[in-house]
Design a protein around this nucleic acid. Structure first.
Lengths: 106, 106
DNA sequence: ACACTAAGAAACTCTTAGCTG
DNA sequence: CAGCTAAGAGTTTCTTAGTGT
């Protein structure tokens, strides 16, 4: 464990969203089509703000987490929470389970 | 002139916002604290999607244009327009003029 | 299992200078 | 003037391998 504090807004929201699904960094990375061998270390650096995320990968994270791109740049916590709820209420199925089902399917 | 088509959402919104103020690429770059010698060519590549913008500079663009960070990642045109209006209606002074005043002050 | 990191390899962006309408 | 781009210089990220909890 021992999570380090995110240093920018994107990393903060990414970690928030991942934790809300109870996913590990590696599993989130795999859900976003990163190779398993690098998924954990890359997500770690994105969350802590060591590296920035290219737009193509931002889209994959957004899709995997069922959130709009803009979510990761919303600075107000309350607004972010509302958007997250609204985005997910569209989907009746629990997404954590959907993601983990996909991962096992491979 | 001869504007090339933006290849991603960030570039599209950046150009939109810049045009709404009637600023040139060079002037926008200078307003975001880029050196005059590079301002035009860099903004050009950000808008056309050749290069991606680091978060630190995204914040400077957002501030110069009086828009929230998330604006540049809103995919729906109608929503983007609404946010732009709302963000600017806070400010009674016309921002194009404010920006150009700053530029001349140097 | 989970989160994180150093170091060299690989990929990207920046500056300069110059082109087109 | 306004927008765009090639190429080498400069900077960042990626992969690998490994640390510590």
């Amino acid at each position: 464990m021992t999570e380090k504090c995110p240093a920018n807004i994107y990393g903060r929201r990414l970690r928030e969203a991942r934790n809300s699904y109870g996913l590990s960094q590696e599993k989130l990375g795999i859900a976003a089509r990163l190779d398993q061998s690098v998924a954990g270390s890359r997500v770690s650096r994105y969350e802590t703000g060591k590296h920035e995320v290219k737009l193509g990968l931002q889209k994959l994270f957004a899709k995997a987490l069922a959130l709009p791109l803009k979510y990761f740049y919303i600075e107000d916590d309350e607004e972010a929470r509302l958007i997250a709820e609204a985005s997910r209420s569209d989907k009746p199925v629990k997404l954590k389970e959907a993601i983990e089902r996909k991962l096992k399917g491979k």
